[in-house]
């Protein structure tokens, strides 16, 4: 078991360490340039995901034949689109989000599209959920949250995604999701100490990659849909957390913890649901 643990720690630790160093430099240099900081954070996050994918899956497949093999390419593409969104706002942002949502849905269902109406329903459903999520996460949470709050909320959800994916029978999806959680965790710590926002590129990359991981877990492994839905909506708990704010709470750390309460509650329910619906086993 030590070998597996060491491998997983390496898979989670190395990308997180690299992201921590790169983000610290980037936050330090562009502390007063929010647009450049957002672009850099998004690209560093996407780079971390791609490295974590390489360590979890053992290599890239080109051309990709199955949905999971699209993840590194999707991370790169979403990060680049997110950077362009920082330059051109307005309608372009929504159109590009819709294209990314449709593209992600097609990655999963393209091979089954011929003459299958149910597949079309899936494509439309996944596209709508992803598109609405981009609007909600990018506009609602991003505008109201600090960089530390947002990235910690996403980190909790992704980290829990790692646990439930592992329970659901996929060590690889679990490792990748756990890596994303750890990467977001270090970004949260840095964003807290530098007291900076993280912009809209990182949440966009998170949405499409974590969405793909949850969808892979539900469709191809044994991840329960209920657990996936709870983890998907967990970051929106930040909005509820803000309503719990009290004017007397002056400490940033205390405010952060209070704002996280709803996210932590949703994540805890999600993990419990996974343990109840897919009991752990050591049969591997």
């Amino acid at each position: 078991m030590n070998q597996m643990v060491a491998q997983s720690l390496q898979g989670v630790g190395l990308p997180s360490l690299a992201v921590m160093i790169a983000s610290a430099v980037w936050f330090g240099v562009f502390r007063k340039h929010p647009r450049l900081r957002a672009i850099g954070t998004g690209l560093i996050f996407a780079g971390g995901i791609i490295w974590a994918y390489l360590l979890a899956f053992g290599g890239f497949a080109f051309p990709p034949r199955e949905s999971g093999q699209w993840i590194p390419y999707l991370a790169g593409a979403v990060a680049l689109v997110g950077c362009l969104q920082g330059i051109r706002l307005g309608l372009w942002r929504q159109v590009s989000n819709l294209v990314l949502s449709l593209g992600t849905a097609l990655i999963f269902f393209w091979s089954e599209i011929s003459g299958n109406r149910l597949t079309l329903v899936w494509i439309i459903g996944v596209t709508v959920v992803l598109f609405l999520s981009t609007i909600l996460l990018q506009q609602v949470i991003e505008d109201r949250c600090s960089g530390a709050e947002l990235s910690l909320g996403l980190a909790l959800s992704a980290g829990a995604g790692g646990i439930v994916s592992f329970l659901g029978g996929s060590a690889v999806l679990g490792q990748l999701s756990g890596s994303i959680g750890a990467i977001l965790g270090v970004i949260a710590v840095l964003a807290f100490f530098f007291n900076v926002t993280i912009g809209s590129v990182l949440p966009l990359v998170y949405l499409f990659i974590f969405g793909s991981l949850l969808l892979s877990g539900c469709l191809f492994a044994e991840l329960p849909w209920l657990t996936a839905v709870l983890l998907w909506i967990a970051p929106w708990g930040l909005v509820i957390g803000q309503r719990l704010d009290h004017p007397k709470i002056s400490s940033r750390a205390k405010a952060l913890v209070i704002r996280m309460l709803s996210v932590i509650a949703l994540v805890a329910i999600a993990i419990c649901s996974a343990f109840l619906l897919v009991p752990p086993s050591s049969e591997l």
Partner: peptide
Amino acid sequence: NAPKRDTDIKGPDFLNAAQF
């Protein structure tokens, strides 16, 4: 001869039976 392991082997880490 281990149902949970069979599920893992059929899953995305190994055979990915849902897609292949």
